[in-house]
């Protein structure tokens, strides 16, 4: 997949489908088994030492769980200046003030510790740490899913504002399609470690072609939708250690054909930038 400058690409899928693994691989928090990751044209898999360090500054992450990703023994001041210290970059009071202002936190909080903050404030610290070094790519791994809805909206609004101000790109990992719809320019749908459909947000929401995407969309408890018209998938996701033959979704697919059990589907571009890997789509298109 590809992520352009200033763009938001969302990866959606069930828990355990591998969305976080993709995000972490990009930052090499997990070392990928094989493949290439190009950041501004450079294959980061081959970079080492100082050059990698410089590049890495441009890529940051916001973790899902702000409670466990902040060191409980560090004050807010230490937490938000850690990126500077770790990279030996100069900072002063103005830098701190500016950063706190960017994430709408009061300066009074600087001497507090994580346990004294609310979930929303903690996540704002997470955002401040991520944007401190002015990165060009931020991997946002379920940045709001542990938060309440009104706080969720505040954090997402903040992320949008930061994107507008800095032109940063987001790889936005989420299982909440309502949120993804508002955040993303493009969406990649993942099932069992594979991207099954990718396209612009309106392609996915209005012209989804893969049965898995359609099931995901119909699972959104959307207000105003017809309560009865729902695709409920039967059964559980198979184990990642016993991946089914053929199409990985065939065990749960409501539209399964014989070919799906034996042959892995190829990816077809059904319209500009809208790719699907499903036998049913290849047949008709």
């Amino acid at each position: 997949m590809r992520l352009d400058k200033g763009e938001t690409l969302a990866i959606v899928g069930e828990s355990g489908c591998g969305k976080t693994v993709v995000g972490w691989s990009i930052l090499r928090l997990i070392e990928p088994t094989s493949g290439e990751i190009l950041f501004k044209g450079l294959n980061i898999m081959n970079l080492r030492g100082k050059r990698y360090g410089e590049l890495k500054r441009k890529m940051q992450i916001i973790f899902q769980n702000a409670d466990s990703s902040l060191d409980p023994r560090m004050s807010v001041r230490n937490l938000i200046t850690e990126p500077f210290r770790a990279n030996r970059i100069f900072f002063n009071g103005d830098t701190i003030r500016e950063l706190m202002e960017k994430v709408d936190l009061n300066e009074e909080l600087l001497e507090r510790y994580p346990h004294e903050l609310s979930g929303g404030q903690r996540q704002r610290i997470g955002v401040a740490r991520a944007i401190a070094l002015k990165p060009e790519l931020i991997v946002a791994d379920e940045p709001a899913s542990s938060l309440d809805f009104s706080v969720q909206a505040q954090i997402l609004y903040l992320l949008k504002k930061i994107q507008r101000d800095y032109g940063v790109s987001y790889l936005f990992i989420s299982h909440n399609l309502n949120i993804v719809r508002m955040m993303a320019d493009r969406i990649a749908v993942m099932n069992m470690g594979k991207i099954v459909e990718m396209g612009r947000t309106e392609d996915i929401f209005e012209r989804s072609a893969h049965p898995y995407t359609q099931a995901l969309l119909s699972a959104i408890p959307a207000i105003g939708s017809d309560r009865r018209k729902r695709i409920i998938l039967k059964g559980e996701m198979p184990s990642q250690s016993e991946i089914p033959k053929g199409c990985r979704f065939h065990t749960r697919c409501p539209l399964k054909k014989r070919i799906c059990e034996t042959t892995i589907p190829t990816t077809t571009e059904i319209s500009s930038g809208h790719c699907v890997s499903c036998h049913l789509v290849c047949d008709t298109g």
Binding site: S118, S150, Q152, M182, I223
Partner: peptide, 18 residues
């Protein structure tokens, strides 16, 4: 009203304060 409006199709309208 604010709850229903906070995440709507027209974008985010968070409720201020806490």
């Amino acid at each position: 009203k604010a709850l229903l409006g906070s995440i709507s199709k027209s974008g985010f309208h968070p409720i201020g304060g806490s």
